[in-house]
């Protein structure tokens, strides 16, 4: 039980919720009829928290994240970000890191990171300065002139994270960002992400279907049921921070992982 530290995170947290989802439902108009993807999803993400969403494939995790990012409209329900409704993409409030290879192959790493700034016509000077700072933050100093195909999978996702952070949004949404990486790189990237999260004090909503990754990263884990997606459990991960690889071998870690697994299995039969 030595890692069972106080639930409070070391950083002071404000009372206001970074994200508040209420009664969110969504139905897709599929080719063979309606597909209910999300059903009455409600959740609250406190400012500065690291919240991980897990659930079986096809349960609506991506849909939920897309709606939080304002990239897709829900059938019903509301999403508030810092108290104000999300009605469309707003890169100043929410940054998104996508699955796999979402970098533009025709731009260098630095130009990829600058992309969000160039979309809103930021001055060249500011663009370079911010992008350089982000490149350093994600540990890719000196790789700015490389094209994506000249980078490893892990490096590409570092660039994606830098791109998501370059506008300094308070919230970062991440949809299985490390799913395509090998196990070892994935662990390293998780660790790196925690460092970046700590340095930047962002609120992170992170989707994965790796339970180990979920427990390792999260302040709290939200478990979703199979389609139509509902939140069926909310688990506080009361492990001390900073997290270390050794924690994965502990009983506490194993029990948390097991609890999540039981929830997913029980509701997916």
């Amino acid at each position: 039980m030595q890692y069972m530290a106080d639930v409070k995170s070391p950083r002071p947290q404000s009372r206001a919720a970074a994200i508040e989802v209420t009664g969110l439902s969504h139905i897709y108009e599929g080719r063979d009829g309606q597909v209910p993807a999300l059903q009455e999803v409600s959740l609250t993400v406190g400012a500065g928290r690291f919240v991980v969403i897990v659930g079986p494939s096809g349960c609506g995790k991506t849909s939920l994240l897309m709606m939080m990012a304002g990239l897709r409209h829900q059938s019903s329900g509301t999403i508030l970000c810092a108290g104000k409704p999300i009605t469309g993409p707003d890169p100043n409030r929410v940054g998104v890191v996508f699955q796999e290879a979402s970098l533009f192959p025709w731009l260098t790493a630095l130009d990829n990171i600058e992309f969000p700034l160039s979309i809103r016509h930021a001055p060249r000077e500011e663009r370079r300065r911010r992008a350089d700072a982000m490149l350093n933050l994600v540990g890719l100093k000196g790789f700015g002139t490389r094209y994506p195909h000249e980078l490893s999978g892990g490096m590409k996702q570092r660039v994606s994270i830098a791109r998501g952070l370059v506008q300094d949004p308070p919230v970062l949404l991440m949809d299985e960002p490390f799913a395509a990486l090998d196990e070892q790189t994935r662990m390293t990237m998780g660790h790196e992400l925690l460092r970046i999260w700590d340095e930047t004090a962002k609120t992170v909503v992170f989707v994965t279907h790796s339970l180990t990754e979920a427990v390792y990263l999260a302040d709290e884990v939200l478990v979703m049921s199979a389609r139509p997606g509902r939140i069926i459990d909310r688990i506080d991960i009361a492990l001390a921070r900073p997290r270390t690889y050794e924690m994965m071998a502990t009983d506490v870690f194993g029990r948390l992982r097991e609890r999540i697994w039981q929830q997913i299995r029980r509701r997916s039969d």
């Binding site: 304002g70 993409p89 996508f98 796999e100 992309f115």
Partner: peptide, 11 residues
């Protein structure tokens, strides 16, 4: 995905 990325940054 590329279109989605651009839209998410307000393009």
């Amino acid at each position: 995905d590329h279109v989605l990325v651009a839209r998410s940054y307000g393009a």
